[in-house]
Structure formats: structure tokens, C-alpha cells
Amino acid sequence: MTFDLDLIISFLPDILRALGVTILLWIVGSALGILVGFVIAVLRRYGPRGLDLALLAPVELIRGTPFLVQIFLLYYGGPFIGLSLDSVTAGLVGLTIYGAAYYSELWRSGFNAIPRGHIEAAQCVGLNRRQTLKRIILPEMTMLLLPSMVNMTILMLKETAILSIISVPELTLAVSALGTKYYAFVEGFAILALVYWALVEACSAMGRYAERRLSKYRFAAT
């Protein structure tokens, strides 16, 4: 096995650009997913019952099928219903929809986990609905949901690699292309794995740091 570091270095600019695409897709996709997920969760919890049921179906459809199949459906099937997206847009939309389904379930579990008593206590001391949401529910929920949100966000990073299959010019695609060109697959994928690993570890380290900083919001022991 020839470990060709020079090769990697000479293509560093390409690889860095691809890494930028990966990170951009990851951050934008996660942020949109979290946002849309929140909206879905709020609609399902506070909206009419029919809406809850109407939203249940798509959420479960997304959660019950592989991301790759969803992406294929969107990218290759989309044009047949007048939805022609380029690969990057399709990737981002797919990632957002996929993430929104999972994040909405996390938000829902967060809403359910906050004891009614905390909300009642807030109303007793005279907080209105908005203040209750801002001062009580959201801070408590942030603490509660942080670990699972971080986990989901890490999953989102790993799912971006799948977008290489529909030729989104992200990191995995760039490395595969180099591999094909110079027949250096093993070296390329090994380094690729290390890059993702580093990103994931960095993300979970940040999550742990945030958890420590926010730990004052943790529920008092009961």
C-alpha cells in the first residue's frame, strides 16, 4: 500500500473546498432542520388534533425510510412532478426534511418532559404565556434536549456523506474522485474517515462543554 501524502497535499485546495461544502450543508441543513422541526412540534402540540395527525404521517414516513431512498426520490423523481433541483439544492432540501422529522420528535419529547407543575408555578408568579415559554420552558428544554440534539446533529454530518451518491460536490465525492483518478482509494477513504471522526469528536466535545455550562438549569433532584 503506497501512502501518498504528496498526492493529498497537491489536492489540498480541492479537498478544502469540498470540506467547506460538507460543513456548509451540515450547518445549514441542521439549523433548518432544527427550526422546521420546532415548528412541526409546536403545531402538533398546540394546533388542532387534525393537524397533529396530518403531520404524524410525513414524520413517520421520513423516519421509517432510508435517507438515500428519500434523496433518490427527490432528486430523480422530483423532475417528474415539476421539481427540478440541482444536486446541491436537492441535497440541502433532502437533509432539511430528513432532519426536521427527527428534530421534531426530539422537540416533542422535550415538551412532554417538562412537568406541568413548572408551568403552573410560572403562571402562579404572574408570568404570561410568552414569558413562560421564554423564561421557563425553553431554558429547561435546552438542558434536557442538548445531548440528544447534539447526537442528531452528529448524525446529520454523517448523512451529508450520502449526498455524494447524487454527486453533490462535498468531501466524500471529492475524495472518491481522487481515488478513481489515481487509484488511491484506501488512503483517500482512510483520511476521509479521520476527517469525519475529528469533526464528530469536536462536535461532541462542544456539546459536552455546553452541557457543563448549562448544568445550572438541570432539574433539581427529586
Binding site: 454523517k158 448523512e159 451529508t160 456523506a161 450520502i162 477513504f189 469525519y196
Partner: peptide, 10 residues
């Protein structure tokens, strides 16, 4: 910490 896709390719 790494995507399954990358593991599979590797």
C-alpha cells in the same frame, strides 16, 4: 464517529 458510507467504501 465516521459515516457508514465511508466505512463501507474503505
Amino acid at each position: 464517529g465516521t459515516p457508514l458510507l465511508v466505512q463501507l467504501l474503505l
